[in-house]
Amino acid sequence: MEEAKFYKEIAEGPSSAGAYWIQTEDKVRLRVGAYHSLGDSKGTILLMLGRFGYVERYGRVAQSFADNGFSTVVVDWRSQGLSDRMADDPQAGHIHHFSDYQKDVSAMMQVVENLEMPKPYYLVGVSMGACIGLRSMLDGLPVASAAFISPMWGIKMSAVQRIAAWPLSWAAKATGQGHRYVPGESGEIYVLETPFEDNNLTHNAGMYDYWVEQAKSAPELQIGGPTMTWLFEALSECRNLSSAPSPNIACITFCGELDRLVDNDSIKARMAKWPNGEFSMIRNAKHDVLTEIPEIGGDVMSQIFAFFSKMEIQGQTHENV
């Protein structure tokens, strides 16, 4: 494990932050970031971000975590941030198999262990990261409880799009064309090409400007649209997860009423069968409810901290009985 490049100025996270290179079992080099809390620690949040995510993207969020006593570890998934890209086109959001992300999780946890990050561990999964995180929990990820933000347990599509997506993405992968972008997508950076007024992520202009400035300052951290193989693999994983039992680990889940990226019906179906699960639909919120303006999202962050604290107290009480 070696120190990696970290963009402290654009992250605006805790001062005790750093990043590290680590290699996965299939020889992919990943970058993992660590934000340390100050003072007494309540544990470490394993922050699993979505398809646009990279270590610095949620630096301000990591600062809020630190202010509330939590350290944070976050990974640049393969083909994202400064981690190795899986296609010749570095802008392509490409993978070979969705299960490869679990190799990234294993590498992330190796960094957690090497740095002796404080226990207990908590999962915060955002969009695609929530899909990866759910699979990790089913595979035994050692977390005390979890919070999911607009989890990608289904991809939002019209009926016609869904009917076409399966055979087209399968055929592209099967014929060696899976590295091509999904129709309508390209290598363009979303936040630089989409005016704030038209974005699908948040009503929070300050947060959107923060992401825009990051993209301008470090375009090498950004990626464009997903490839056909990514689409096929993501659809397959969502379908496989839909029939899997919910882990016996407490979780709280938030999604936005106006989300155009993930399928809220799939989220509701999952949470209806999750023991010790709490669900909140945020009215008028877009995809990234964690960064929504208070007038819409309320204080999702405080709700997550309260939930983690409640679960920790209940766990200690059960241990003492």
Score class of each variant (00 low, 15 high):
Ala11Ser: 14
Trp21Cys: 01
Trp21Gly: 01
Leu30Met: 11
Val32Trp: 02
Ala34Gly: 00
Gly39Gln: 08
Ser41Gly: 09
Lys42Tyr: 06
Ile45Tyr: 07
Gly50Leu: 03
Gly50Pro: 00
Phe52Arg: 12
Gly53Trp: 01
Gly59Arg: 13
Ser64Phe: 08
Asp67Met: 11
Phe70Cys: 02
Val73Met: 07
Val74Ala: 06
Trp77Val: 05
Asp88Val: 02
Pro90Ala: 07
His96Gln: 14
His97Ile: 10
Phe98Ala: 11
Ser99Ala: 13
Glu116Leu: 14
Pro120Ile: 12
Tyr122Gly: 10
Met128Asp: 02
Cys131Ala: 12
Ser136Asp: 09
Pro142His: 09
Ile149Lys: 03
Pro151Tyr: 04
Met157Phe: 10
Ser158Leu: 07
Ile163Gly: 00
Ala165Phe: 10
Ala165Gly: 07
Ala165Glu: 00
Pro167Arg: 10
Leu168Arg: 14
Leu168Ser: 12
Ser169Pro: 00
Trp170Asn: 11
Thr175Phe: 14
Ser186Glu: 02
Asp198Ser: 06
Asn199Ser: 06
His203Cys: 05
Ala205Trp: 05
Gly206Phe: 04
Tyr208Arg: 15
Asp209Ala: 15
Asp209His: 15
Asp209Leu: 14
Val212Ala: 07
Gln214Phe: 03
Ser217Trp: 03
Pro219Val: 03
Gly225Arg: 01
Thr229Met: 12
Thr229Asp: 04
Ala234Arg: 15
Arg239Gly: 04
Leu241Gly: 08
Ser242Glu: 11
Asn248Phe: 02
Ile249Thr: 14
Ala250Lys: 09
Glu257Gly: 13
Leu261Ala: 09
Ile267Glu: 08
Ala269Arg: 12
Lys273Leu: 12
Phe279Asp: 05
Arg283Ile: 05
Thr291Phe: 11
Thr291Ala: 08
Ile293Leu: 11
Gly297Ser: 09
Asp299Arg: 06
Val300Tyr: 13
Phe307Ala: 06
Phe308Asn: 03
Lys310Ser: 06
Lys310Thr: 13
Gln316Glu: 15
Asn320Gly: 05
